[in-house]
């Protein structure tokens, strides 16, 4: 269970996240939606202990993330803007992560197989395509066989087959009783993956609920999103 309670994050005079509260429950995929710059990544960074909240709490199974020992065994994460160092080989990226959380080295081979990177394990990350880098990020998230996944824009750069694979994977992962929190700005894709939706705009939560509740009365999640955020396509261009 992920619980975000009244989290606020200020950078000087600017409020990036304003009194954000929501939960992500086990057995469900929760979509965290919002336009670029809405506060999604800031919220997830606070949840994972990377940024300090100005106020409020973010808990994983009732504990702040920094208090978890061997946290990768509880939470797997993909972070937007935090990728493997290009000069390092994919397998070495996974190796240092595994060692830090006392995860057996056989698990590295398993997750590389899972994401289809076994043949590229010894290739330097700078030679990976964007999709391969995303899959390496997913492999890192899965290393500790966590019961919670926190994924920031995990399908960025993936081809349609990759997106479909991730979708199926996340659905199965949640059906096994695990918690999945998935941030995205891709409405159509998210609608096909999630059970619950949290919509954030300009740092504030503007809607939370089951997918059906949010889209009720709208032709699609995208329509619901534009209606809820009172924005128009092309408005921010």
């Amino acid at each position: 269970m992920i619980e975000i309670k009244d989290v606020t994050k200020k950078y000087g005079a600017k409020t990036a996240v304003d009194q954000v509260s929501f939960t992500a429950a086990p057995g469900r995929v929760t979509g965290f939606l919002g336009p670029n710059g809405a506060g999604k990544s800031s919220t997830l960074r606070i949840l994972l202990g990377l940024d300090q909240a100005t106020s409020g709490t973010a808990l994983i199974d009732g504990q702040p993330y920094p208090s978890l020992t061997q946290p990768m065994r509880t939470v797997g994460a993909i972070l937007d803007g935090a990728s493997a160092v290009p000069e390092r080989r994919g397998v070495d990226h996974l190796r240092w992560l595994a060692q830090s959380n006392r995860i057996g080295s056989q698990r590295i081979g398993e997750v590389l197989e899972t994401v289809g990177l076994a043949d590229a394990a010894k290739v330097r990350v700078r030679k990976y395509s964007l999709g391969m880098k995303q899959r390496l990020g997913l492999a890192a998230a899965l290393l500790g066989e966590p019961r919670i996944l926190v994924l920031d824009e995990p399908v960025n750069g993936l081809d349609p087959e990759g997106i479909r694979t991730i979708r199926g994977f996340l659905r199965r992962y949640a059906e096994q009783g695990n918690t999945v929190l998935l941030s995205s700005h891709l409405m159509g894709e998210t609608a096909e993956t999630v059970d619950d939706i949290v919509i954030i705009d300009k740092g504030r939560i503007i809607a939370t609920g089951e997918l059906g509740e949010i889209t009720d009365g709208h032709a699609s999640l995208e329509e619901a999103f534009f209606s809820l955020t009172s924005s128009q396509p092309g408005q921010s261009w």
Binding site: R45, P66, G81, A82, S100
Partner: peptide, 19 residues
């Protein structure tokens, strides 16, 4: 310095949150 390239520090803190 490698810690501050390509968001490495973020991954390091995710792996070892006790800074």
């Amino acid at each position: 310095g490698a810690e501050f390239r390509h968001g490495q520090l973020g991954l390091s803190v995710v792996a070892v949150p006790n800074r």
